[in-house]
Design a protein around this nucleic acid. Sequence first.
DNA 1: AAGGCATACATAAGCCAGTGATATAAGTTG
DNA 2: CAACTTATATCACTGGCTTATGTATGCCTT
Lengths: 160, 160
Amino acid sequence: MDVDPPAQPVDELELAVGLARIRTMMRLLDVPRDLSITALSTLANLERLGPRRLTDLAVMEGVTQPAMTQLVSRLEREALAERQPDPSDRRVVVVAITRHGRAELARRRAVQAKRLAELLAELPQEDRAAIAAALPALERLTARAFGPADPAVPSPEVSE
Amino acid sequence: MDVDPPAQPVDELELAVGLARIRTMMRLLDVPRDLSITALSTLANLERLGPRRLTDLAVMEGVTQPAMTQLVSRLEREALAERQPDPSDRRVVVVAITRHGRAELARRRAVQAKRLAELLAELPQEDRAAIAAALPALERLTARAFGPADPAVPSPEVSE
DNA sequence: AAGGCATACATAAGCCAGTGATATAAGTTG
DNA sequence: CAACTTATATCACTGGCTTATGTATGCCTT
């Protein structure tokens, strides 16, 4: 079977260790979180994927539905997201990121980017190049992890 | 204009977004955590860097010292790590990972690696290659984030 | 079209892992 | 050796999660 002759077989164990360390690193880089990890991740997903129902968000974040109910309430209290009714099913709550929510994400990312820039600056040029080259691939990798996300409207604009 | 700019400038903002998504992904890949994020990260650092004093661990993990005291107590209760006295300073508690702790890390990594392998399998070959190529660079990047970690003994063996 | 089940979200009670303030014990110094 | 510093532990409290349950709406079957 000449199935792809593995060029780089990607040692998955090594990858797992490396990505776990990235996880820890991002936790350290995070600005003194007044928002929980899940809250930030949810906001980011809302920005990336557009409005989503509450239950879908819970699944995406790997938390229970009540946890997401509370989380959305918190986000709403801070005007970072908002609940919208679904006219076609009045049981449903659709959650959307607000303009303020986007701004907040941008602010935090700017801080992280600045710190990352400092770290990157210490790396040799070829390391930076390798990382830059792998970014799109990593993007596709994480996309898979979130499951077949309903490709619905990436909602470029949301009310408030 | 086919001259690629000599260097890939690494869009730090894009990198921040990508790494944040990796963080979320790893959270989802994590086996039904009976251990907290900090606990796992601490264990991993103990394995990587060898025994460390409690306060140093707190700094590394970005938590307070009392939090680390409790965390170490939990780890000790589960026999994943152990407190050791420091003969040269009897106030100090040196924390070391146990054999069982290493095994537990290995077990979890194996699970993550398996899930990652599934995700990687869905990617085109060149994406896998790009990721594999970037791994050492990412490793060096995260190493910087943990600060100039005292290069003390990487402790290949610890009691139990 | 009504009864009964399913679905979507909210509410309630409890737990776990974090925080700041403070206590205890050990080392350091004039 | 008294006063200060350092290293860890303890305490009271809080936030964000969990499970169990409640309420409203939708769907389906007869």
